[in-house]
Amino acid sequence: MLKKITVTVNETPHHLEVEPRLLLVHMIRELLNLTGTHIGCDTTSCGACTILLNGKSVKSCTILAVQANGKSITTIEGLAPEGGPLTPLQEGFKENHGLHCGFCTPGMILRATELLARNNNPTEEEIRWGISGNLCRCTGYNNIVKAILYASAKMRGEALPSTEPEFV
């Protein structure tokens, strides 16, 4: 039995017929072909699938597409217009080498987008706890934290911290 749902994804409304058991992440990736949202686990552990649902970051592998009915979703593709300008976080990740393989990056950026929307002046400690539901195997997190601090400074309109590596 297919269910009719309406979801707004990156500001475009979609009318879909889905199996009730379809995971939201599969709806996004397979039905809408928005492949920037990734899948890294089967136990809600990695956060690679993080999206914004009505502005809140959620792991889209752990909710059903039907639960998103009537709601609005932002994926990594919807953060900035194609070709830019980038959001402060996207810019922060690039400027501070906050990514290696890029697989965790969309989830990290969306999670951090919500963190900074709630508090645009977080401490390093708050950032580390704030992204602790998102795994990155490549970067060792130092530069992800740095990228988020950079974005927060930019959002507050303050002088940007140096992006030079502290490599003595």
């Binding site: 492949t35 990740f93 890029g102 969309p106």
Partner: peptide, 13 residues
């Protein structure tokens, strides 16, 4: 980086 931060990476899946 440009493609990865904008969701335009291209992985096998």
């Amino acid at each position: 980086d440009a493609r990865f931060i904008q969701g335009k990476g291209h992985y096998v899946d």
